[in-house]
Amino acid sequence: MLLRLYYQTTMLKILKYSFFDLMRSRWSYVYFGFYLLLGVVLLFLNNDLSKAVITLMNVIIVLVPLIGTIFGVMYYYNSKEFTELLLAQPLKRSSIFLGQYLGVALSLSMSLILGLGIPFVFYGLFKSNAIWDFSLLLITGTFLTLIFTALAFNIALSNENKIKGFGYAILLWLFLAIIYDGIFLMTLIFFEDYPLDKLSLVGTMLNPIDLSRTLILLKLDISALLGYTGAIFKQFFGTSFGLVVSFVMLVIWVVLPVLRIMFKSRRKDF
């Protein structure tokens, strides 16, 4: 019992350390500043909250995964020496790596939420109808950060070679953000003679980026554009059941890589 508590506190301590280490680092500020600027510029140019939310969506589903991936890999390789030092101490391995992972993921999420949140709050978000769309945007953004940082840690843990690690990380992002959609599109066109609604639903659910995009798009009532397919999607995602399923899917996307981090870190030879 006491040992368990000890482990938990060490994880929290490492989390705290990583978190504040990152909070002090230049890159967090750059990231935070970027989103702040983006939010301000969008609102200043658009003067319309719901429009700004759509533009933000475009940015978020592309950039958040990219930055999560790069940052995760970078942080792991950078703090490798410190990790080795920690490993020499009587600490549980999984708490070291989980602490680091959470430290990175949470600081990135915080930069995102604060960077975008502040300009929008000042603009009068709480008085606007767009608050739910915006919240959904931030929630999916946070999920994407958690997912892609975890995936990045996985890659870094499996690759000693930095260059290789970065390469794989970029490839992963490229695959989920772009190539996947290409294959998806080809499949849809190839099987156009068959009923495709189930296939498209499954295809969307399997990729966290597509899932986030669809969730936000449907919230923005673009679903009427989607015609018949849209009706099916709306039927699925519009209900609380569909929403729960999608969030469960996102949670699975977080949990699986995290489990692998724990598993891998337990066996890894340093």
């Binding site: 592309v62 953000a177 849809l188 156009e192 498209s200």
Partner: peptide
């Protein structure tokens, strides 16, 4: 044009791949 041919593909609206 693609959406006209295969309406289901509209779910890829605003995807980066489509922009490319």
């Amino acid at each position: 044009y693609i959406v006209n041919r295969t309406p289901e593909t509209i779910i890829l609206l605003r995807s980066l791949f489509i922009d490319i």
